[in-house]
């Protein structure tokens, strides 16, 4: 019964991080750029992916994360996009994806001819930001209907992203939103974060978005 103090000093999410690194390296080895889309529910991620498919003249595939329903997958499939659905629910399911989900999905997906793998994370601006899922780029999507304050309320998503898409900007004329204040708040959280104003409906910012995506692949995927 000798008391012992065992020092460990290890990151709690080490296991997830190791799987994420494997996923990232495996995809890079196949020449596939993996892009993780994070946002609140209803920011326009699925519509953006539909529109992306019409503009991106490359092989693309989507891993769709939802607690429940295959509604988003059906929308993407009807647009001719290859998709693999992850449901973590239906009741009490995880509110985010982890690297192990992605590794399991990749074991079942035929990646031949795929240049870009998009992961539409579960709609939630808090939890997905905590977990590395093996993407080469993390994108946070924030719609203008959500208000100027959201970057301040959910800073980790903005800290861990390499690009912020400010979506649904076609609605700006109808909203009492100060776009400059929104951008200033984003810069307060992550001064280096690149931003693109985008609208899938009026096709604003899509060329910049496609250029960003293409650069992800041209610049050899990395961690």
């Amino acid at each position: 019964m000798c008391p012992q103090d065992i020092k460990i000093m290890q990151r709690i999410l080490t296991g997830n991080d190791q799987i994420a690194a494997e996923v990232r390296a495996s995809l890079a080895g196949k020449g596939i750029a993996c892009i993780n889309l994070m946002s609140s529910p209803g920011s326009g991620k699925t519509t953006l992916l539909q529109k992306t498919a019409t503009k991106l003249n490359k092989g693309m595939f989507v891993i769709e994360g939802d607690i429940y329903t295959t509604l988003d997958s059906e929308r993407l499939q009807s647009a001719g996009i290859g998709v693999y659905q992850i449901n973590t629910g239906p009741f009490g399911g995880d509110c985010h994806l982890e690297a192990a989900w992605i590794r399991s999905a990749l074991n079942e997906i035929d990646l031949a001819g795929i240049d870009f793998l998009f992961i539409e994370n579960i709609g939630n601006l808090v939890c997905p930001a905590e977990f590395d899922i093996g993407a080469h780029k993390n994108i946070v999507v924030l719609s203008v209907t959500e208000g100027e304050d959201k970057p301040l309320k959910y800073p980790l998503a903005f800290r861990n992203a390499q690009l912020c898409l400010i979506s649904k900007v076609d609605l700006l004329p109808y909203l009492d939103l100060n776009l400059n204040e929104l951008k200033q708040n984003i810069k307060r959280i992550n001064p280096q974060l690149m931003m693109i104003e985008i609208s899938s409906i009026i096709e604003k910012g899509l060329d910049d978005w496609i250029n960003f995506i293409m650069a992800c692949r041209q610049n050899a995927p990395e961690g």
Partner: peptide, 27 residues
């Protein structure tokens, strides 16, 4: 969570604490 220097307002800052998520030890 404003990652801008409270002293000089420069955005050129580095996070040196507050990002920990570690198991330290068990007894």
């Amino acid at each position: 969570p404003f990652f801008i220097c409270p002293n000089c307002e420069s955005p050129d800052t580095k996070l040196i604490a507050g990002d920990e998520l570690h198991i330290i030890s068990i007894e």
